[in-house]
Every structure is written in C-alpha cells, then in structure tokens.
Nucleic acid binder design. Structure first.
Lengths: 295, 295
DNA sequence: CTCGCCATTTTGGCTAGACATAAGCGTTCC
DNA sequence: GGAACGCTTATGTCTAGCCAAAATGGCGAG
C-alpha cells in the first residue's frame, strides 16, 4: 500500500452481495449481528487472553513517531494478522518497545480508535474491533479489495479507452481550463463473473504522466493511479440514477433500473487528477456506515 | 442541541437542490468551487485579520475539559457566528482564557480539525473551514436543518401513523424478538413546498417511552426522538431503489424512477430504538463527502 | 526597487511525569 | 456460598514544559 493511498476515516463501506460460498462459522440471519458493539463487548472479556507479540512491530522512520506507530499497528490489523477481538499490547508495553513516551503511543492508538479500527476500555485493554478489516479507512475504495473481501473472485474488463483533447464537455467535468490532454475510459468490475460495478473515468494526463491504455487493459485504473499518482484531496458524491443503454448493457441489468452511482473526484493540490463515476446495480449494492455519538 | 445528538465525524452531507432564491453574493457555476481546499487556502491569507473575541467562550463544566473546549468552539461554528474563513483564537490565547494547558486546548482543536470543521496551518493559525456548517458532524442528519441551510422553507406532513403489535415482519426489521409494541409511520419533508424526502419509520416503543402519534403531527419523528431518546450507536445504509406507488405519490415523482434511499438504524446499548428509511428523488439529491489522505 | 534573509508567530510533535476512573479479581467476612 | 471490600491494572485526562517546522512580514543589502 503506497503512502498516497492512506485516507482519513470514511465510515462508509461498500457492501457487495454475498458470494456463492459464504464463510463457514457464522450465525445466519441474526440481524443484530450486523451491528458491532454488542459482539465486541462480549469479546472484550471473552478473548482478553489473546495477546500478540511486540516483536514484528517496527517503525519505518518516516514522518512523526505517532504516525509511524499508527502504521505499525494498523498493518497487522488490516492484513488480518490480528483478528478482531485480539488484544493489542498495552500502552506501557508499546512505550517501552518503541522507546517513546506514553502520550505518543496514546495519540497513535486514539487515532485508530477514533476511526473504529480499535476499541478501548479501561483496565481491559485495547482490542481490534469487529469489522476492522471491512472498513476501508486507509484506502480509497478499491473494488478489487472489496470483492476479494467478500470472498468472491475478482474480474476486470476494459471496455473503452481513448485520449481526448478537444472535448469541452469533458474538460468542464474535470474543470481543466487549458487544453490539457485527457484520458477517457469505461470498464467493468466483476465478482464471480457477475458485473458489480461499471466505471467511467476521466484522467488528467498532465497530472498522471505516463498513463496509457496499455497497462489499463490488465490493471484497473484505480490501482494504477494509486500506485503512480499522489493525491491530496478527494470528494465523493452519491446519487441514484436510472441505467441508460450503456450502463444496462455493462451491468447486465434492465434498462431504466435504479443504480447507485458514486462519483469520485480527486485533486493533487489544486490540479484535478481524475473523475470516476462508479455505477452499481441499485438495490443489491449498499453503502454502510456505523458511528457513535461523541460522548 | 441535546448531548445525545452529537455524533462522530460523518464526512457525508446531504445536498438538496438549490432553492428559488439563492444566497446573494456567490460566484455561480464555478465547478471547482465545489471543492473546499482551494478556496480555503486563499482565504487563509485573505481573511486572516478576522479574529474573534474570546469573551463568550465558556466551559459548561461537564465532562473532560478538552470536550468542553471542543463544544465551546464548535458552537459558534455550527450556528454560524463564526463564518468560514474566520480565524479562531490561537492555542496560547485559549490556554490562557480557559486556564488550562496547551495540550488540552490542542486536543480539542485537533479533534475538530480531524472532522473538517477547522483547518490549521503553522504560523497562520486555525480558521473555520468552508462548508463547516454544511457538515452534519454533530447531528444525526436532521432534514429540517438541511432544508433550512439550503435557504428554503421547511415543511412537514405526517401521512400515516399507527401502533402495531402483531406484525412479525416489522418486528424482524427492528430485530425485536419479544412482542414489544412498535410505532409505524410515514411522513414527508418539504422544501419550499416540494417533497424532498419521504420517511418511513419504525420505533420501538419500549425504547422510546411516551411516544404517540399526537406530537408527531407537528414535529418530525427525528427531532422528537433526538430530544427524548438517547442513543449509543447508529448505522446508515445507502442504496438506490425504484419508486413504488407509495413513494412516487409522496415524492411526486414518476413510478419506477430511481430514488436514493438512506436507511438509518439506531440503538441504545443493545436495544434497537428505531429504523428509518428515507427516500429521496434520485438524481437531484446527493450525498457528498470530502476527505484527505492521512499524510 | 527587488531580492533574499532573518525574526516572529503559530502550530506540530514530543517528553516525563501526575492523578483519575473503570473494571477485573482476589480476599475477607459474614 | 455470597456479598463487600480493596488491590491492581489499563486507559483517560491533564500539566508544563521543550524544540522543530512552516510561513509571514519586515529589514537590509545590492
């Protein structure tokens, strides 16, 4: 994961319909189980013996110490080494391990807790929260990851890709005034072969030098951009639209059926980088977010 | 605003179509103006003389000092006394004013900055960010507020309201197993007389004692519940659905047209409080969120 | 007049403590 | 056996300072 791909808390996760073979040991049809806090609460006492070793935790030496600690802790959480319910080392242990002060460790942990990756309770400790992995806290929603997490096989197909220069309408969409070159493309993302997302995208070639249609035949534009282009700001807009002919064909849905459309604009400083319009078959796909009151 | 209505960062704001008479002095049709940072950046130097008085800032004596400071600061921001671009007092001034340490002030300001209400820059200071007011950071989205902020006149109409007891389907929706009494209702929210949201709601009467249909004829269920019932957890689900006969009639849209549906579940501890399904005319209404990478 | 440098201001980060609070857990005393 | 008590532990909050980094604004040299 590149540094540029880390983003601040988005308490919204896209949920994709269950794959053919769901994960085994799970209570079925308990609607309340979709909410985190109760499970976590019981887990706090149940699993408190699950501790982890401090050994592999290393600072990477770049940036403030508290952000380094934050990364060191978030890594095993996000890649699944620390299962939900796992108790992480106590502040005092981390302080000793990293040779820093407790306040610095505290800041790192608090920030992760604020984003919902961790849950803290006095005397008990800090545990990895349920669905910590489901939260795309650090990444800009990456469809491949979302599909993979749902247990399905990810697929990708580039439908159209071309450079455009003299298209005032598209330039206006990205709000680039000078006649900069733009890349325009359409692609679909598949889950077990079924289309789950159609992506229309406009890329400012000036901001993303080196982009061409060739690599995009293999790798989706999202990951490519994340790996090659830094960003400082993003904006998401969610709306409901009816599927036109193009969308209906790509998503294999009925013409005019309701679609959930996420529009994502990204900037690097003041220069627009890309505009992506992501179409999802309406009722099946949902965006879910959880939160608590500020005490 | 009751204490129970404060929620943690939801970087998503619902945007309602512009009212008939938009606010006066505003550049029209500048697409880039929909993104915050550029404007704020120029504003940082332009308006830095705009300082505010420390005088009215008071601690309310309840809870940790940093949360008291947080409230003291967020109040004038959210109610509009401090316009976007306003420079708030420096940490050292606040420290002196509140007779506390700089770290405590810092924690309060940092938490507000993390949620996007404030923007900080070294040497320059801390300013109220553009669209700080548009962000429903503290409140559960309250339609009346959203409409009012857009400059339109808010209206409300209760369509249906009744107590239900023996309806397994509705009980399953709220996931209440025992035969607790439920209140079921439908209502519409209007902006300048035009429907902007149809609300279907199920309330657990055990969790919201005293609720009846009478007050709800005047005051919308959202505000009523916020004022009378505490909550500890909420979940939002967003999807796109086609308008059925009921929705089409209430929203005055064509049958089958795409609607943006926000489903909100609320719990108080482990007991489900309410389930609201909020229908918006699809393409006009959007949910917008902005964020930055974690450095 | 312009350029570059430096002082000042404000936030960013960090430290090493302190006491408070919640909660688990064991002990003691009925 | 069970209730009450208190010890221990981990986090929550707070303090009073330190130096660093960024950016502004002014000053002085060319």
């Amino acid at each position: 994961m590149s540094a540029a791909s880390r983003g601040r808390a988005i308490p919204l996760a896209i949920v994709i319909p269950k794959p053919v073979a769901p994960r085994s040991d799970q209570e079925p049809s308990d609607a309340r189980a979709t909410a985190a806090s109760h499970l976590d609460r019981t887990m706090l006492s149940a699993n408190r013996k699950d501790s982890v070793s401090l050994e592999p935790l290393r600072l990477d030496g770049s940036g403030p110490i508290w952000l380094q600690i934050r990364r060191a802790l978030s890594q095993p959480i996000l890649n699944g080494d620390w299962r939900p319910g796992t108790r992480i080392p106590a502040e005092m242990d981390l302080k000793a391990h990293f040779q820093t002060s407790r306040m610095t460790v505290n800041k790192a942990i608090q920030s992760l807790a604020a984003e919902g990756l961790l849950q803290r309770r006095r005397k008990v400790g800090t545990i990895v929260s349920e669905r910590a992995q489901e939260r795309p806290v650090f990444e800009i929603w990456n469809t491949a990851d979302v599909v993979a997490r749902s247990g399905a096989e990810y697929g990708y197909r580039l439908l159209e890709c071309e450079f455009v220069r003299d298209d005032p309408e598209k330039r206006a969409l990205l709000n680039v005034t000078r006649s900069t070159q733009l890349l325009w493309l359409r692609c679909v993302h598949l889950s077990n072969g079924r289309p789950v997302q159609m992506e229309e995208r406009l890329v400012n070639v000036d901001a993303a030098p080196g982009i061409t249609c060739e690599p995009l035949a293999q790798v989706a534009p999202g990951p490519w951009l994340l790996a090659h282009v830094p960003w400082t700001e993003a904006e998401h807009t969610i709306s409901a639209c009816e599927a036109g002919p193009l969308e209906a064909a790509a998503l294999e849905v009925r013409l005019g059926s309701a679609c959930l459309v996420v529009e994502r604009r990204t900037w690097n400083g003041d220069v627009p980088v890309t505009l992506a319009r992501l179409w999802h078959p309406g009722a099946e796909h949902r965006l879910v977010g959880r939160f608590e009151p500020q005490r």
